[in-house]
Computed example of a mutant assay.
Amino acid sequence: MTIATRAVGIDELRRAWCAVQEGQFLLPRPTERETVPRPTAPAVADDRTWHPGETVLPVVGCLPQAGATSLALAIATHEAPARVIECSPPTASGLAGAATAELGTTSSGWIVGRRDQVHLARPGTHHRDAGLLPLPDDAATGTSLSVLDVGWELGQLMALGGWLSATVDAAPRVVLVGTATVPGLRRLETTLNLLDPARAIVAVRGSDPRRWPHELTTAMGPATGDQHRAGRWVVVPHDKRLALRGIDSKPLPPALVAAGREVLRHVSAAGHPQRGNS
């Protein structure tokens, strides 16, 4: 980097030296009771913990377009009355066209809608990280389950504060959604290594691992292989219509809802999901 300089005359140097000698350039030192003022952070609400009354099941996509949102909706559809809380930014929403009835925006900033007995909530504004998400509103009367479509990379989420990170960290069961591809299995393995494996239920979009080609079976990491051998594994079918059009107001494919039912069977077999942080 080049710094521009100018010539300094003898008279200017002499005046500067005299000013130093007279103490004109000395900064006042704080006394014992004084402190140098520092910039203050914006005030943040003290209570950032979510206290839902219903059970909560987080669903984490291990990579983009893994199908986490559609599986979260399938789980809620099977367990209805239930709701899906999508936590990804509005620009990445998979539920924008999912409601059969839009119910507006709540005072806390969530856009809410409904499809049959499943209520939907998604952020109305963009937040630079998950720690800034507003707390979800209370669930509708009779809601048995809130499915969290986490929508953030798990490592990034765990490094942040906020109710979403705390909820995922406290949940007894977390559904990890991957794809039957080499990159998908790599990301699934790294995500599994961030969790206690006993908490994870793996859902992989594609065929049963027994039908995988050799290059896929060899891409399965140790933690992923342990999940399959332990039976904490759900095969999620690939649906061409969903892949092409995304989630709309039409009913979900029955095979996908069946996969959601299978996820809940594993959750029930392992113990109930979280019922609020009280």
Results as ranks from 00 to 15, higher is better:
Thr2Lys: 09
Arg6Cys: 03
Arg6Glu: 12
Glu12Trp: 03
Leu13Gln: 10
Ala16Cys: 03
Val20Trp: 03
Gln21Val: 05
Leu27His: 03
Glu34Pro: 00
Glu34Tyr: 01
Thr40Cys: 13
Arg48Tyr: 02
Arg48Phe: 08
His51Phe: 11
Glu54Met: 14
Glu54Asp: 15
Leu57Lys: 06
Leu57Asp: 02
Val60Ser: 02
Gly61Ile: 00
Pro64Ala: 14
Ala66Asn: 01
Ala68Val: 01
Leu71Ser: 07
Leu71His: 06
Ala76Asn: 02
Glu79Ser: 10
Ala80His: 08
Ala80Glu: 10
Thr91Ser: 14
Ser93Ala: 15
Gly94Cys: 06
Gly97Trp: 00
Gly97Met: 07
Ala98Pro: 07
Ala99Asn: 04
Thr100Met: 10
Glu102His: 14
Thr105Glu: 15
Ser108His: 11
Trp110Tyr: 10
Ile111Cys: 14
Val112Tyr: 05
Val112Phe: 04
Gln117Thr: 11
Gly124Phe: 05
His126Arg: 11
Ala130Asn: 09
Leu135Gly: 13
Pro136Val: 08
Gly142Ile: 13
Thr143Ala: 11
Ser144Tyr: 04
Leu148Asp: 04
Leu154Met: 14
Met158Trp: 13
Leu160Cys: 14
Trp163Gln: 11
Trp163Glu: 09
Leu164Pro: 04
Ser165Tyr: 01
Asp169Leu: 13
Ala170Gly: 07
Ala171His: 01
Leu176Arg: 01
Leu176Ala: 02
Val177Leu: 02
Val182Leu: 03
Arg186Val: 02
Arg187Glu: 08
Glu189His: 04
Glu189Tyr: 04
Asn193Ser: 15
Leu194Gln: 14
Leu195Lys: 11
Leu195Asp: 06
Asp196Leu: 08
Asp196Ala: 08
Ala198Gly: 09
Ala200Met: 05
Ile201Asp: 06
Ala203Val: 06
Arg205Asp: 00
Asp208Gly: 06
Pro209Arg: 13
Arg210Asn: 10
Arg210Ile: 05
Arg211Tyr: 10
Leu216Tyr: 09
Thr217Met: 08
Thr218His: 13
Met220Asn: 01
Gly221Arg: 11
Pro222His: 07
Ala223Trp: 07
Ala223Cys: 05
Thr224Asn: 01
Arg232Met: 01
Trp233Thr: 09
Pro237Tyr: 01
His238Asp: 09
Leu244Thr: 14
Leu244Ala: 13
Arg245Ala: 14
Lys250Val: 09
Lys250Gly: 13
Pro251Val: 07
Leu256Pro: 13
Leu256Val: 12
Val257Thr: 15
Gly260Ala: 12
Val263Glu: 09
Arg265Gln: 15
His272Thr: 14
His272Arg: 15
Pro273Phe: 11
Gln274Ala: 13
Gln274Tyr: 10
Arg275Pro: 06
Gly276Ala: 07
Asn277Glu: 12
